[in-house]
Design a protein around this nucleic acid. Structure first.
Length: 715
DNA sequence: AGCACGCCGACT
DNA sequence: GTCGGCGTGCTC
């Protein structure tokens, strides 16, 4: 029986720590269970990752006892332990931080600081010569206890009072857990047999190819496939694959990039497959998440449809993982700490659990297509049917103040005359209005994020990045010049212009700002499909929808906002958006692209909308400029409040990694715009192999850099 | 992360 | 003179 437990803590701490197992827990404790331990005088939740008899001698005397074992059953499965361990090592993220990602946040117990009166204070000893405020606080607390944060909110400037009272021994501040909940989720359903509805929508030609996938699932191989097919064909294939997998007694995880798609595909598959389907996305409340998490762990579902975080679900006996719309940027998580690439994790998991991995897309990322061609597993079901669709490329001068040019106006007018509908695509939401100084040309930007301020409610300015709001300044802070308003190019501005151009015609915005809930969403969709709304002005949000009327004109405004930015992926991104938008255009319809850069190669490629052609030209570009898939790029971002600190770290790291003898290209540290008031410094490292980047970054980081950086690889 | 220890500016 | 700012370092 083990005497010690090796624990991982949800902290940016790269080591595991040892704790003694009290005898009453020795029988019960297992790897993957949560425990409560004392760490430097505070209580935290740890995860057991190992049970051992002996620990290194030097730890013996500082080794404390585990205070409580929370779980009856492990919350982190063996394979998730393995997955997170390998992955945290790979991405240089503390193991505990990664395990934390896999659990519903409510399972990581948090302590709050609570204030109690000591016996001394209760007996009114030493309370005579206290200040008015101190007396008031003691009276307020009385026999109860309050959290420090609550008191801070209730009374102002309370910190000095608390520390004084505490020094006088009149109050005590203790760490206490919020209620420990031991929920187990719903009970699993009784074993039942589900009747699989058989459908015959798969053509024999396609069937041959997908039989390979079925075989891989059956043989428990971790092979990887890419299904290159339009939306409807992919969904058909998925439902076939899902049925086949489930009929072999295995489970399926289907990952989609957006909540909305999760709901849509859930509804769609529910109609087709008669099995227990679980749905999980970021729209669930914490309580719902926890329940669903336990339901999944308790084997309630055969198919789980979810967003990104689903990749960490404790699904046993998994046979198939599908990542749909694999090209979607949101799978590359660069917003919160730690950064990670969902597809990378899916690959690790597929390997560890011998699961077949399927990517699906109608416009695959260059990297995935390249890999599928090279390593096999490409299933191409794009029918090169000639569309009668017309692509018009129209020059629109940058100096032009009108958003809708004359030509486009004519086109729209023509459709309206025929009582046809129009979709206009703009890549910005809202009604942007910036402030520019007439005299010195200063564009007013947010001090936290460096994002230009927008005018808000006539007399205020707002940063749409961090929601920082300020009163509208009357003069330029630098030269005291007068501000001029610059109208932006968001959906709101387009709507206004459309309303001026075509009075009496009903037009509507379709972006995350205009579509705040499902009610407005369905209303807009219905109004459009019934023909009440003639012109729909939407952002990229449109690409996640299937259920719109086809239109005879799709207007694309300012596409250079997408392909024009200096990012090796921007061309690909634009082609993908256009592929997604194409589905809204009727066979005889027109795609009208209004741009200041009509000669750009990506615009020219749109003329015949051929993925293979696009792929070939893009691949050549990637090769020439040493971008993925030929070269991998490691991105390391140091962040923190104090720029001097971060700059130091970045400098030390930079000089260290430059000493490495390997074939690396290292780019000098660059200052990035602030996010949430934090400074960021970025260093890029290029090499042919991921491994070379990882190893060298690790070597250069060493122990002194345990936190305050994010690392991710573009592969 | 959060808590302790340690060294410099404004104050009862 | 002290209080308290946050920079640095450690946690079994």
């Amino acid at each position: 029986m083990a005497n010690f437990a090796e624990l991982v803590l949800p902290l940016p701490l790269s080591k595991t720590l040892y704790y003694k197992i009290p005898s009453q827990y020795k029988n019960r404790i297992k790897e993957g269970m949560r425990v409560i331990v004392d760490l430097k005088n505070r209580k935290i939740t740890g995860i057991v990752v190992g049970l051992i008899d002996k620990i290194p001698r030097e730890f013996l005397k500082e080794c404390k006892e585990i205070e409580e074992v929370i779980d009856e059953e492990p919350v982190v499965s063996k394979s998730i332990l393995e997955l997170t361990r390998r992955f945290s090592d790979y991405y240089i993220v503390p193991w505990g931080e990664f395990i934390k990602l896999t659990l519903p946040s409510s399972l990581i117990l948090k302590t709050t600081k609570k204030v109690f009166l000591t016996e001394k204070a209760k007996n009114k000893k030493n309370t005579q010569n206290l200040s008015k405020n101190e007396k008031a606080l003691l009276n307020f607390i009385g026999n109860k206890s309050y959290s420090v944060t609550f008191l801070k909110r209730k009374f102002k400037d309370i910190s000095p009072i608390l520390s004084k009272l505490s020094r006088k021994g009149l109050i005590e501040i203790k760490n206490e857990f919020r209620k420990i909940k031991k929920r187990k989720g719903a009970k699993p359903l009784e074993e039942g047999f589900y009747q699989l509805k058989l459908e015959t929508f798969i053509h024999s030609k396609e069937k041959d190819k997908i039989d390979e996938i079925i075989k891989s699932i059956k043989d428990e191989k971790s092979s990887q496939f890419l299904i290159f097919a339009p939306d409807n064909i992919r969904v058909n294939l998925y439902s076939y694959l899902i049925k086949e997998t489930i009929s072999k007694g295995k489970k399926v995880l289907l990952i989609l990039p957006e909540i909305l798609l999760v709901r849509t595909i859930y509804d769609e598959l529910k109609k087709r497959i008669n099995v227990k389907i679980g749905m999980f996305h970021s729209g669930l409340t914490p309580r719902e998440r926890e329940t669903e998490w336990f339901n999944i762990r308790n084997n309630m579902y055969d198919l789980i449809i979810g967003s990104r975080s689903s990749i960490f679900f404790p699904i046993e006996n998994l046979g198939l993982i599908i990542v749909d719309k694999e090209e979607d940027e949101s799978y590359f998580l660069k917003k919160d700490y730690p950064f990670y690439d969902l597809k990378q994790i899916a690959k690790f998991r597929a390997k560890i659990e011998s699961v077949t991995l399927v990517y699906g897309s109608e416009s695959p990322s260059i990297e995935s297509y390249y890999e599928a061609l090279k390593r096999g597993g490409l299933i191409s079901l794009i029918r090169e049917k000639r569309y009668g669709m017309k692509v018009v490329i129209n020059y629109h001068s940058k100096k032009e103040t009108k958003i809708i040019g004359e030509e486009l106006k004519k086109e729209i007018k023509e459709r309206l005359r025929k009582n046809e509908q129009v979709i206009l695509f703009v890549n910005r939401k809202g009604e942007e209005e910036f402030l520019i100084c007439k005299k010195c040309g200063l564009l007013l930007k947010c001090k936290n994020c460096n994002y230009p301020y927008n005018i808000y409610k006539r007399d205020k300015i707002v940063c749409y990045f961090c929601n920082y709001i300020l009163p509208l300044p009357s003069n330029c802070p630098i030269c005291k010049g007068v501000f001029k308003r610059i109208i932006g190019k968001g959906t709101g501005s387009v709507l206004k212009e459309i309303q001026n151009l075509f009075p009496g015609i009903k037009a509507c915005r379709f972006d995350s700002e205009a579509i705040k809930n499902r009610k407005t969403e369905t209303k807009v969709i219905n109004d459009f499909n019934k023909g009440k709304v003639k012109i729909l002005i939407g952002t990229q949000l449109l690409t996640y929808y299937y259920n719109f009327n086809k239109v005879s004109l799709l207007g694309v405004l300012y596409p250079e906002n997408i392909f024009g930015i200096s990012d090796y992926k921007s061309g690909e991104r634009f082609f993908q958006i256009m592929t997604n938008l194409k589905k809204f255009v009727s066979e005889k319809g027109t795609i009208f692209i209004q741009t200041s850069f009509p000669e750009n190669y990506i615009i020219q490629i749109l003329k015949d909308f051929n993925y293979i052609k696009f792929y070939k030209s893009e691949l050549k570009f990637r090769e020439l400029f040493e971008y993925p898939p030929f070269f991998k790029i490691g991105e390391l971002i140091f962040y923190g409040k104090n720029l001097r600190n971060i700059a130091n770290k970045a400098r030390v790291f930079y000089s260290k990694i430059r000493e490495s003898s390997e074939d690396l290209k290292i780019y000098e540290p660059v200052l990035l715009p602030k996010i949430h008031g934090e400074c960021r410094v970025r260093i890029l490292i290029k090499a042919k192999e991921e491994r070379i980047i990882v190893d060298n970054v690790k070597k250069a980081l060493q122990e002194n850099f345990q936190r305050n950086f994010n690392f991710i690889i573009y592969a």
